[in-house]
């Protein structure tokens, strides 16, 4: 620390070697490249996407303008992500607790590795499995939900015969985000100071009470940010949804019928092939919307982390 940053005001100007100058310059350029690249993402998407906001009306068919075209897609994106979160969060917390506090030490590390493997499986393989295996296997569950919980708007049915529904997509997405939220949650759970855990135990708390007294309060904000990062992933996930859903431009909460809203990303993936330049611009414009939504979510997650770090520091 002390040597790397010599005091700034020096009477004589420090000698800068050419090698140092080049190397430092290259490092700085690399950092600037990242800045440029990110700016480029925004600028290029805007340049190519803006025409998509005011294209000829037939491009938006069956909708009439951009916002009524993108509206159902945004709805579908959020619906799929929320379904995925509702399924994934309890499991993530459970598995994270399993690794950090329940599993015998000898199997905790391999388990953590296996869960990380889940994250390494490419999304297209999840899509393949979701479309060819899960969709048909889950049909009895959807029948059951329809018969017993059909009064809820989510299960109003009638259940799709292919099984390729929002619920299936949500489950596949959930399996994909479980590793992310689990990895972060287990890290914050494991960081709970031993002292606090022992304080709870010494009061005669059972293991579960110890977790509620010492672990959860400590880990709350970390878990929230883990969930938000999982949400960001679920919002942007393309292939799994595109391969599982049979989509139509509707807005419905019905999770098990055969008409399901597409998500922004899956809509791009399924329509890029027959895209005319106008349509391509439109798809890019929806991509811009997706970028904005995920940016907002990730930004909020980071804000939560930052705030809690400040709280801890205090």
């Amino acid at each position: 620390m002390s040597v790397t940053a010599p005091p700034q005001p020096r009477p004589a100007k420090a000698v800068v070697r050419p090698g140092d100058r080049i190397f430092a310059g290259a490092a700085r350029v690399a950092a600037l490249t990242i800045m440029l690249a990110l700016a480029g993402v925004f600028v290029f998407l805007a340049i190519e996407g803006l025409p998509g906001l005011s294209a000829p009306a037939h491009i938006y068919a069956p909708a009439e303008d951009f916002w009524s075209y993108v509206g159902p897609l945004v709805f579908g994106t959020i619906l799929a992500a929320v379904v995925a979160l509702i399924i994934a969060v309890p499991f993530s917390i459970g598995v994270a607790l399993f690794i950090s506090h329940y599993a015998p030490p000898r199997i905790a590390a391999p388990v953590a590795y296996v869960i990380d493997l889940l994250a390494a499986v490419p999304s297209v393989v999840y899509g393949l499995w979701g479309g060819l295996a899960l969709a048909s296997a889950i049909r009895p569950v959807m029948d059951w939900l329809y018969e017993n919980l059909g009064f809820l708007p989510f299960f109003a049915g009638p259940p799709s015969v292919t099984g390729r529904t929002m619920l299936t997509a949500g489950i596949v997405l959930a399996i994909m985000i479980v590793p992310i939220t689990t990895a972060i949650s287990r890290e914050v759970f494991a960081q709970t100071p031993r002292l606090h855990e022992e304080a709870a135990m010494a009061l005669g708390a059972t293991r579960w009470e110890m977790i509620r007294l010492a672990v959860f309060p400590y880990a709350r904000s970390g878990v929230i940010s883990a969930v938000m990062l999982g949400l960001g992933r679920a919002l942007g996930e393309t292939m799994a949804v595109a391969m599982v859903l049979s989509a139509s431009p509707v807005v419905t909460l019905n999770l098990i019928s055969d008409t399901n809203p597409a998500t922004i990303a899956s809509n791009i993936a399924s329509n890029y092939k027959e895209a005319t330049p106008d349509k391509q611009a439109l798809l890019i414009a929806t991509g811009l919307v997706l970028f904005a939504v995920t940016f907002a979510v990730n930004f909020a997650a980071r804000w939560v982390i930052g705030r809690s770090e400040r709280n801890v520091a205090r």
Binding site: F44, E48, L229, L235, F291
Partner: peptide
């Protein structure tokens, strides 16, 4: 940090636009 959160399809669209 922001880049970590870019959905992969948006990255593809960026390259496409470019």
């Amino acid at each position: 940090d922001v880049m970590t959160g870019i959905p992969s399809i948006v990255a593809g669209l960026f390259a496409l636009s470019l």
